[in-house]
């Protein structure tokens, strides 16, 4: 049971990091991306390759993942950021679909559907993190770092400019803000943290393949942010814990055949998204209902 809870806690920390990173885009930047799993994946592949080919050092893997995912996210976002609203969502959907195909086909790098197997347990400065508790602490450390960065930045002029842009792009432009630069920086930061989450995920599962980086995963991350409350510090964490605890909670419902658990879980998750958007669109932790 302890091992199970530790495993769940590790996943919660990793997905918490992931939703905090998406919140920078959706919540603070008003950039509605449905392709976040792509950057999670890029980080996971980069981290896995560092671990398999160089050394399983978690800091090195996280750095490589952050660079790969951050830089690529900024490069990919540059052309797409020129368009607004619906177009950006559709472009990100298209990117997600293309990336899934590329991840599957580029099997020399990604292992295709077979994935990259046998990722060794992580170390930090040569000290093994094979103990689940130690690894959990490292994951929580990264999460805390991300939260601190977000809190700091959002109080600085960068964050204020970003949020001004979210609330009214033309007003921000009129105030002399460099809109494309602000947006690109937000995407870069979000992509880099998603990449770090990917590297942690690769170590946690000891295995990565394309199935973890599909549209469904992107939507799950988006749901964590939206259900918890976009644009708040605690919201994405709340959403993460709720959505991760859901499958575990369902296994305790008596009389539910194990083969149906997956479908029932999806049903509740979809229903929660719809009902929440109707009655509480700012999310559970959101204060400013009807702001947007």
């Amino acid at each position: 049971m302890i091992a199970y809870l530790l495993n769940l806690a590790q996943l919660a920390a990793i997905f918490g990091l992931l939703s905090v990173s998406l919140n920078i885009l959706i919540g603070y930047g008003g950039i509605f991306s449905v392709a976040h799993a792509v950057f999670f994946g890029l980080g996971a592949y980069a981290g896995a390759h560092v671990a398999l080919d160089l050394a399983p050092d978690i800091l090195l893997a996280a750095l490589a993942a952050a660079l790969t995912a951050g830089v690529l996210s900024a490069l990919l976002a540059l052309p797409a950021l020129r368009v607004r609203g619906e177009y950006f969502v559709i472009a990100s959907l298209g990117l997600q679909m293309l990336a899934t195909t590329v991840f599957t086909e580029a099997s020399d790098i990604t292992g295709g559907l077979g994935g990259l197997v046998g990722i060794p347990p992580p170390t930090v400065f040569g000290v093994s993190l094979a103990d689940p508790l130690a690894f959990l602490l490292v994951c929580l450390g990264f999460l805390a770092l991300a939260l601190a960065v977000v809190r700091l930045l959002m109080r600085a002029s960068f964050g204020r400019a970003l949020m001004a842009l979210r609330d009214s792009e033309s007003a921000a432009e009129a105030l002399g803000k460099n809109v494309p630069l602000l947006k690109t920086l937000a995407v870069l930061l979000g992509g880099a943290f998603a990449g770090v989450a990917g590297a942690l995920f690769a170590f946690q599962e000891a295995f990565v393949n394309v199935e973890s980086f599909t549209l469904d995963q992107s939507v799950l991350i988006m749901a964590m942010v939206i259900i918890g409350g976009a644009g708040t510090l605690a919201g994405p964490l709340l959403g993460t814990v709720l959505l991760l605890a859901l499958p575990a909670a369902l296994t305790f419902i008596p009389g539910l055949p194990p083969t149906d658990i997956g479908a029932v879980q999806q049903l509740i998750y979809g229903l929660a998204m719809t009902v929440l958007m109707i009655f509480r669109p700012a999310g559970l932790a959101g204060r400013l209902a009807g702001r947007r």
Binding site: V219, I226, Q266, L267, Y269, G270, L271, A272, M273, T274
Partner: peptide
């Protein structure tokens, strides 16, 4: 997001 929820349901 609401429509996506409906799709999943």
């Amino acid at each position: 997001v609401a429509a996506f929820g409906v799709v999943i349901v």
